[in-house]
Design a protein around this nucleic acid. Structure first.
Lengths: 214, 214, 214, 214
DNA sequence: AATGAATGAGGTTTCATTCAT
DNA sequence: TATGAATGAAACCTCATTCAT
C-alpha cells in the first residue's frame, strides 16, 4: 500500500467500497461506480489494491475493525452480565445507526459459501465467540448466570439476538420487518428495555423454578 | 406466463433457479447455467419469464410458498405455546435440512434495499408476523405467556431466534459460526432442547420473580 | 469447437485473425477489431476460442498447416536436389504472394522469447528440418550433393535463404529491402534463376576444385 | 530533445528501452517498466521524448548506430572478398553475442508495415546495401567474384545469410531453430568455417565450370 | 414451440500520458 | 527540475437477451 493518499482519502475510498458492496454484494458493485463515489479514478483503486477481490477484502477488514473496536470497548469494562448485555445492545444500536453499511456489508458476507464461508466465519465470528466465552465464563463464576444451560448454546442464542438486532437497524429488509413486528419508528430505548427483559429471564431462571410451579 | 410446461418441469426450472440464486445471489447466477441445470434451453426461460428479475421473483415466490406451507401446517395444530415452539423448531430444522437452498435464497433477499426491501418484507414477513400474532394472542389469553412483555417485541425476538436457526442449518457461513459456538456436528435434538430451555424461561418468568430473589 | 459456423466462416475468422496478428503481433491486435474484420461479434470469438491466446494459437496452427501442405506437396515429388530447390523456390514464391499474412504471422512468432520460443521452434521448424534432412540424405546418397560439407549446416543455410525469400515477398520491410538490393518490381522468375545459380555452386563444388585453380 | 542528461544516463535509458522493446515488441513494453529499469521516473522519459513512439525511434537509432559502427569498421579494412566475409561473420557473431537485444530490436522493426516499413528499410538497409555494393564492386574489379551473377542479387543473398546468422545468435526462436539444424551448443568457429565454405563456392564458381563437368 | 448461436453493452483491468508537488 | 500518483481511454472478456432455424 503506497502512501500518497491521506488517511482521510483512504478511509473515504474504503467507505465508498463498503457502501457499494453492502448494497448488492460483491458482484453487483462496480469498480467504476466505487471510484466515482470516492471521487477518484479507477486507476487509483488498482494502484492501491491488486484487484476487485483484494479491495473487497480491504473493505471487509476496515469494516470489521470498526465493529471489533466497539465490542472490545464494551467488553473492557468489567461488569455484571446483564449490564454487559445492556451496554452491548446500546453500543450495537448506535454503531448500526451510525455505520449502517458496515453492518450491511457484514450481512452480505454471510452469503458466502464453501470453504470461503468457513474461513470467513472462523476469522470474524471467532473474535466474538471468544469475547463472549470470556464474559460468560466470568458471569458463571460470579453466579450471574444460570447453571443448567450449556454456556456455548447460551452464548450462541445471545449473539443470534444481537446479530438480528444489528441487521434490524441497518438493512432495509430487516428494518421493515422490525416495523411489522414492533411498529414503525419505535424508540431505541424501548427495544433495549424489552430485549433486556427477554434476556434477563433467560439469564437467571433455573430449570427447577419452572418445574416446581403448580 | 404461458402454461405449456408440465408442473414437474416448471418446478424443476424453479428449483434450478433457487439453487443458482441461493449460491451467490442475483448477480452471480447466470441464466445459461440455470437453463443447463434445468435441462432446458435459455429460450424457454425467456418464453416463460420476461427477464432475469421476473424469473428471480418467481423463484422467490416458489420458495416462500413451500416455507409458508410448513409454517401453516405447524400453526394449524392448536397447542400450548411451548409445544408450538418445539414443533416450530423441529419443523424448521427439517425444512432447512431438506431444502437448504430455499432458506439460502430467503437469506439472499434480505439483502434487498430501498422500496423493494420494504415491499418484500411486508409480503414475506407479514405472513409470519400475522401467524405469530395469532398464536401469541391465544397464548396470552390462555395464560401460557408472561404478561409483563409487549407481545410484539416478544414475537419479534422469538422469530429472530428461529430465523437464525434456519440460517445456521442452511448457510455455510452460519453453519460454520454455529460450529464455533456449539461444536461441530452436534445433533439437532440437543439444539432443540437448549433453545427450548432458553425460550421457556423467557415465556414464563414474571419480572417480580427476579426482583424478589434474595 | 462448436459446429454452427460453416467451414467458410471459420476460415474467414481465422484469416481475419492472421491478418490482424500478422500486422503488429499479438499485443497490437484487438479482439474487437478482429471480430469486425471477420464480420462477427466478439461474443462469437469467445464462444469458439477460450481467450485471445487460444485464438492466436488457432490462427498460427491454421497458418502453418497451409504452409506445411505446400512443403509436403513439393517434397512428395521425388527429384534431383536442384530441381527440388527450384520447385521449392517457386512454391514459396507463390504461397508468399497468395497468402502474405501467413508468412507475416510466421515472422511475428519468431519474436517469441524464452521457453515459448523454444517450444514453437521445435514444433514448427522441426517439420521443415526433418523434411530437408530426408531430402538431403537422399541427395548425398545419389551423389547430387558435395561431400565436404556437414549436411546439417548445409540444410540450415539452404533454409535460411528460403526463409528470407518468403519474408522478402510478404513483409513490407523485407520487400522494401529486396527492392533496394535487386531493384523494384523485378519478376519472380529472375529471382528464382539467380538464387538457383547461387545454390547450384554451393551444391556441387568440392573444396579441392577451388584450391587447385591457378 | 533537451540535453541536461549526462551521456551515460542517456545511454542507460536507451539501453533499457532497447532491452524492453526487443523482448516483446513495441506494444508489449511498458514505459513505466522502462523507466524503472533505467533508474529514472516516467516524467524524465516524457521530458526527453515526446511519446512512446518517439522514444522507440530513438532506441532504434541508437541500436543501429552501434551496428553500423561494426560494419564500417570491418569494411574499412581493404581485403579480399572471402576474407571480408570471414571478418564480417566473426564481427556479427561477436556483436550478436555481446548485444543480443540490439539485434532483437532490429528483428522487431522488420515487422513494420506500410510506408513506415519502406522508410525504415531505406534508412537502415540502405547503409548496408551501399556498403556491400562498394565491397562487391571492388571484388568484381579485382576478379575475386564470379562474373556470371548479377552482383545485386549476389549481395542480397549474402546479406540474407548474414541476417539469419545474427538472428540465430540473438533471438530465442532462431537460436532454437539453429540448434535443431546444427545441434545445440556448437562452437562459433565451426559455423564460421561452414558458412565460409558455402559462400566460397558461390563466390568463385562460374556457370560453365558446372556445365562442362562430365 | 424449442433451441442455442449470435449479439453487444457493460464489467474488470492496464497503461500511456499528465501534472501537482 | 524530477517525481510518481492520478487520470481515463481502451483492452479483454462475460452474459442477459434476441432471433434465425
Amino acid at each position: 500500500m503506497l502512501k500518497k493518499l491521506t488517511a482521510e482519502k483512504q478511509t473515504e475510498i474504503l467507505e465508498a467500497g463498503i457502501e457499494a458492496f453492502a448494497q448488492g454484494g460483491f458482484h453487483a458493485a462496480g469498480m467504476a461506480d466505487i471510484a466515482r463515489r470516492a471521487g477518484i479514478s479507477v486507476g487509483v483503486l488498482y494502484k492501491y489494491y491488486e484487484n476487485k477481490e483484494a479491495f473487497f477484502r480491504a473493505c471487509l477488514r476496515h469494516s470489521l475493525a470498526a465493529l471489533e473496536r466497539v465490542l472490545a470497548e464494551v467488553t473492557a469494562r468489567e461488569d455484571k452480565l446483564l449490564h454487559y448485555a445492556g451496554q452491548m445492545i446500546r453500543a450495537l444500536q448506535s454503531f448500526s445507526r451510525d455505520h449502517p453499511s458496515h453492518i450491511r456489508l457484514y450481512h452480505q458476507i454471510t452469503n458466502a459459501s464453501g470453504t470461503i464461508a468457513r474461513q470467513l466465519a472462523e476469522e470474524i465470528e471467532g473474535v466474538t465467540a471468544r469475547l463472549y466465552t470470556a464474559v460468560i465464563a466470568r458471569a458463571q463464576a460470579a453466579g450471574d448466570l444460570r447453571q443448567d444451560m450449556d454456556p456455548r448454546f447460551f452464548a450462541f442464542f445471545f449473539d443470534n439476538l444481537l446479530m438480528m438486532l444489528q441487521f434490524s437497524y441497518s438493512c432495509d429488509y430487516y428494518r421493515a420487518r422490525m416495523a411489522l413486528y414492533c411498529g414503525a419508528e419505535q424508540e431505541e430505548g424501548l427495544m433495549e428495555a424489552e430485549l433486556l427483559k427477554f434476556l434477563e429471564s433467560a439469564f437467571t431462571l433455573e430449570q427447577h423454578q419452572i418445574d416446581h410451579r403448580p
